[in-house]
């Protein structure tokens, strides 16, 4: 965990760890795991709100809890940039992490695989492997997506690849 900022580190220690090693094909054990995922996500969302650092919404898109959709946003130069967020729980979960997708940014940055999957190889995958099965969706958002947004969104905005929705609207009118 060297090289991570103290804020992320202290947030991480407060997200409840998970204990059940189960994937979507594991029946009752998966239901148990899903409960732990919810507890961690609820705790993390509450923590973000009380620290005035609310930055995502996520909910299960199917009753089995294998597909998740929502929004995430990032504030740069006092402007809020919001993106659709989605991922599937892979059959080999939690041995492998969910592949987080921001479909609107597909093709706009090199730090992304096809389909809008964000590149997590260097900063996140080793951590996930080391902490299996204790890390869950909340940890993937905190350690995978949050640092990716912090690194990429300022570059994408400054280079003009993405525009704020107000700017985009006004340029359409003119």
């Amino acid at each position: 965990m060297e090289g991570w900022d103290p804020n992320t580190k202290s947030t991480l220690t407060q997200i409840p760890l998970l204990t059940t090693k189960a994937g979507p094909r594991d029946g009752a054990a998966w239901t148990q795991r899903l409960k732990e995922e919810y507890r961690a996500l609820i705790a993390y969302t509450q923590m973000n709100k009380s620290n005035d650092n609310d930055w995502f919404r996520i909910s299960a898109a199917n009753p089995e809890g294998t597909r998740w959709t929502g929004k995430c946003w990032y504030v740069h130069n006092l402007l809020k940039y919001e993106f659709d967020l989605q991922f599937d729980i892979p059959v080999t979960y939690p041995a492998t992490a969910p592949e987080i997708e921001l479909p609107e940014l597909d093709g706009k940055t090199q730090k992304m695989y096809r389909g809008g999957k964000i590149c997590l190889t260097v900063h996140f995958k080793p951590l996930w492997a080391k902490n299996c099965p204790r890390f869950g969706i909340a940890h993937a958002l905190c350690l995978g997506l949050a640092p990716w947004l912090a690194a990429e969104i300022p570059i994408l905005v400054d280079s003009g690849m993405i525009k704020h929705k107000d700017d985009a609207a006004s340029s359409n009118e003119s």
């Binding site: 899903l34 919810y38 609820i42 919404r57 909910s59 929502g70």
Partner: peptide
């Protein structure tokens, strides 16, 4: 600890998260 997590209903948790959302 594992036991007390088992008591909570999955639907309750889903509603709690939706309320926060």
């Amino acid at each position: 600890e594992a036991l007390d997590t088992g008591i909570v209903d999955l639907e309750d948790l889903r509603r709690q998260l939706e309320a926060l959302n």
